[in-house]
Design a protein around this nucleic acid. Structure first.
Lengths: 110, 110
DNA sequence: ACCGTACTACGAGATTAGTCGAACTTCGAT
DNA sequence: ATCGAAGTTCGACTAATCTCGTAGTACGGT
């Protein structure tokens, strides 16, 4: 008990504000096949989904790594819900900063 | 004379066809600051420009490397003209495959 | 024919990325 | 209170990437 390691309300993970997002980071985040799979899944689930719900060909710790890249680039927003973390696409911010980019990426057949 | 190392008409460098382009490669090509500078310069010069005309903070051989990444991803088209190589943005192909992507990237302030 | 310009090719070095397993935390349920 | 499920953290390893300098090729002009 005693030292209850702080911040019970700010359980949230660090997200860049819209003004802090950089195009290189966003493009780099999108340029990986695993992360692209995640982004496509999120695009199909506007209410958000948990990392583990995406069936990916990599280990759990690797998924965590990819979620972090996406989050820190500003591509997704993640919030803790129970024992899970629900992520959503930051469509509004992406569309505001780079209009057409996300739709263009999602339009890709291959 | 004799063995005139072939293909005098196909001096062109290898370019992927539209159908061969992959979104990951395009995004990766765009996700580098030096290459983004090149792409922005090309966007401002529809008639095309030579690699050396872009004032970049890297060596000549590094520029060659970046041009190759862009070319092999299908982002630019390069053709030899005299002792130079003129490159242009493959806007038509990019817009057809990923509508909005290029404009979104070029819209980025930062 | 020679020289300079404009690149490309080829290692080599250093940095970054993607991957994993093992150990740890947190929450919810039994 | 204990357990399991869901994620994270922490090295470690490998592969890819960016960078450079040197050397080489190709073309155009003197």
């Amino acid at each position: 008990m005693d030292l209850m390691t702080s911040v019970p309300s700010d359980l949230a993970l660090p997200h860049p504000q819209r003004a802090e997002m950089r195009i290189e980071a966003v493009l780099h985040a999108l340029a990986d096949p695993v992360r692209l799979t995640i982004v496509r899944a999120l695009a199909r689930a506007p209410q958000g989904i948990s990392c583990g719900a995406v069936n990916l060909p990599v280990s759990k710790s690797t998924v965590t790594h990819h979620m972090r890249i996406l989050r820190e680039a500003g591509v997704i927003r993640t919030q803790p819900v129970g024992t899970s973390r629900i992520s959503t696409l930051r469509r509004d911010d992406l569309d505001a900063l780079y209009p057409g980019l996300l739709d263009g990426v999602l339009a890709a057949e291959r």
